[in-house]
Design a protein around this nucleic acid. Sequence first.
DNA 1: CATGAATGAGTATTCATTCAT
DNA 2: TATGAATGAATACTCATTCAT
Lengths: 195, 195, 195, 195
Amino acid sequence: MSSNSTTTDKKQAILDAALQLFVNKGFNATSTASIAKAAGVATGTLFHHFPTKNDIMNQVFLAIKQEFADNMVTSTQFSGDIEQDAYTLWQKAIDWAIAQPLKQLFFLQYSMSADIDVMIRKQAMTSILSFVVELIEQGKQQGIIANFPSELLLENCHGQYLAAIRFFTDNPHLGGDKIHRDASFTLFWHAMKAQ
Amino acid sequence: MSSNSTTTDKKQAILDAALQLFVNKGFNATSTASIAKAAGVATGTLFHHFPTKNDIMNQVFLAIKQEFADNMVTSTQFSGDIEQDAYTLWQKAIDWAIAQPLKQLFFLQYSMSADIDVMIRKQAMTSILSFVVELIEQGKQQGIIANFPSELLLENCHGQYLAAIRFFTDNPHLGGDKIHRDASFTLFWHAMKAQ
Amino acid sequence: MSSNSTTTDKKQAILDAALQLFVNKGFNATSTASIAKAAGVATGTLFHHFPTKNDIMNQVFLAIKQEFADNMVTSTQFSGDIEQDAYTLWQKAIDWAIAQPLKQLFFLQYSMSADIDVMIRKQAMTSILSFVVELIEQGKQQGIIANFPSELLLENCHGQYLAAIRFFTDNPHLGGDKIHRDASFTLFWHAMKAQ
Amino acid sequence: MSSNSTTTDKKQAILDAALQLFVNKGFNATSTASIAKAAGVATGTLFHHFPTKNDIMNQVFLAIKQEFADNMVTSTQFSGDIEQDAYTLWQKAIDWAIAQPLKQLFFLQYSMSADIDVMIRKQAMTSILSFVVELIEQGKQQGIIANFPSELLLENCHGQYLAAIRFFTDNPHLGGDKIHRDASFTLFWHAMKAQ
DNA sequence: CATGAATGAGTATTCATTCAT
DNA sequence: TATGAATGAATACTCATTCAT
C-alpha cells in the first residue's frame, strides 16, 4: 500500500509538474528533464509511468477534462427546467475555471492544439462531455433549445465557454461580479434557446 | 523593379511554404530547412529575410489576419441596418474560410497558440480587427446589440466564429448549405442582439 | 566504484582528446563532434560532462596548470639556497615540458589566448602558481633576487620560461644538452638576481 | 588619383576595423560582415581587397610588425655603445606599445596564435625583426652580450618584451614611471649581457 | 520501481564566400 | 570597383528515450 501510494504520488507529481510547465513555457519549450526535475523524480522514472512525452500531454488533457466533467455532474441538482439547469451548470463551469487558473489556461492554450492526439481530443469531446450532448438533445426535444444540428450546437457551446473564460482571464477582478457572469450566460443562452 | 520583385517573391514564397507546413505538420515538427526547401530557397536565404523561425510564424499570422480584415472591409456595401450588415459580414467571413482552407485551419490551430508572441496577437486583435469593435459600438448605441461589455462581446464573436468554421471544417459538404450557414448566423446573432 | 571510475574515465578521455585536438588543429578548427569521436563517446555525453565547448578549454587549461604545479612542488628537495632551488626548479620545469610535448605546445599556444576565460587565467596565475610567487618574495627578502615589483618579476619569469621551451621545441635535439639548458637558466637567473 | 586614394582608404579602413574587432572580440567571434560594417563598406568590397578572412588577419599582423620595426629603426641615433643603444631601443619599444594600446594588445593575443599562418609568422621574425638579430650578433662579437645561441637570445628578447608590455598593460598607471620602465630594462639587460 | 549517465539523431542559426547588377 | 542578396556547408547544443545498476 505504501509503495502503491508512492507510485500514485510520483505519477501525480509528474502530471502536476507537466501541467504547470506546459502552461507557462509551452509544450515544446518544456523538456522531459525539466518535468522530472520539477516533479522531484529522475528522468528514468518519468518514462516508467509514461511511454512518451506526448503521452504525458494526453494524460494531462484527459485528466483535466475528466475532472471538469466530474465537477459539473457531481452533486448537481437537476431541476428538470432546462434553462435553470443550464444556468446552474454555466455558473459551475465558470466557478471551476476561476478556481483552477492553471487548468483554465491549459484549456485555452491546448483545447485545439496539435500537441494532443486527434483521437484523444475526440474521445474527450464525445465520452467525457456526453452530459452536454444529452442536455442539448433533451432541450431540443422539449422545444426549448433551437433545432439546429447538435454538433453545431456543441461546438458553439464550447466556443462560447472558451470565450467567456478568456474574458474572465483577462479581467480577473470581474470573476466574482454577478452582472458580468450573468451577461456571459445570457449571451450563451440567447444563442441556444429556441425563439 | 525585377530585383525588387525577386526579393518580394522569395519572401512571399517562404511565408507561403511556412503556412502550409505549419498547418500540416505543426510548428515544431516543421524545420527551417523544410520551409526553405518547400519555398525553393537556401536555408541562409530564409534567415536573410527573417531573424528567427518564430518571426516567420508571427509574420504568417499577421499576414493572414490582415488579409482576412481586408477581405471583410473591402467592397462591402454597408446598408446601415446593423443586422443586415452583420449577416453580410458573417457570410463573407464563412465564405473566406471555406475558400481558404489552409488559412482557416491556421486560424483554428494557432489563434491561441503559444507559438505566436503575445504582443503580436494583441496587435492583431486591437488594430487589425478594429472594424468589428466599431460595429459592436454602433449596434450598442442604436440599441440593437445587447448592452454588455464590448470586450466580452468581441471575445464572444471570435469564439462563435471559430466554432462555426470548425463545424464547417468537420463537415465540408455542408459548407454550401444555406440552412446550416444561416443556422450558424442565427446562433451568433441571437447571442448578440438586444432583446 | 566501477561506475565512478567509468565516469572519471569518460570525462578524462574527453579532456585528453580535447588537448590533443586543440594543440594540433586549434580551438576553433576543433568541433565538439571531433572531440567526442576521438574520446570514444557520444556527442551528448560530452555535453553531459561540460556545459559548453569553452568550458572544456578552461578545464584542460586548469588541469595542465595544476599538473605542472604539482610536478614542480611534489618531491622537490628545497636546499634553502635560493639560487640552488631556482636551478633545480628550472630544470624540473624544462624536463616536464620536454617530457610532455603536447602540454608544452598547449602552454605556448594558449597561455595568452582569448579562448580561455580571463577569470580562469587569473585563477591559474594566482592560486596555482603561488609557489613561484612565494619563492620570489623569499629571494627578495634575502637580498638575492632583485628588488623589483613582484608582479613584474612573475611576468618576467613566465615570459622567459615560455621563451626557453619555445627554443627547445624548435630544437628538440638540444633538449638533453646540458650546455644549452644551463644557458637558458643562466639567462633567466641573471635577470632575476640582485647585483 | 581620387579613385586610387579611395581604394587605399577602404583597404585601410578594413584593416583598422579588423584590428579593433580581432582584439576586442577575438578572431573567430569577428564575422567578415561585422568587419565590413565597422569599416563602412559592403561585404563584397572586403573580398575585393582580401581573398579570405585569414588573409586579413595575416595582413594586419604583418602591417603591425612592420610598423613596429619601422618605428624602432627610423630616426634612431645609434651610439655604437651596445648597452646604450639597447636601452634606447627598449624605451622606444615600450613607448610604442603604450602609445598604441590596440596594437600592443594584438601583439599579446596573437603573437603565437594559430590564427596566423606559420609562414607569415616566420617571415615576420626573420626579415622584419632582422635588426634585433644583427644587434645581438654585434654584441656577442664585442663580448658585451652573453655568448649563447643567437636563436635562444632572440626568443628570450621576445619573451621578455611580451612580459614587460603585459605588465604595463595590467598596470597602465606605471607606464610613465621611470623606475618601473628602467626596472624592466634592467631585468632584460642583465639576462643578455656577458658577465 | 527508481535512478541518472549515456546516447545520437535532430535543428536553429551562423558565416565565409560568390556573383549578378 | 562596389554592392548586398543569396548560398549551403558547418556546428554547438538539445532532448526524448534507453538501460545497466
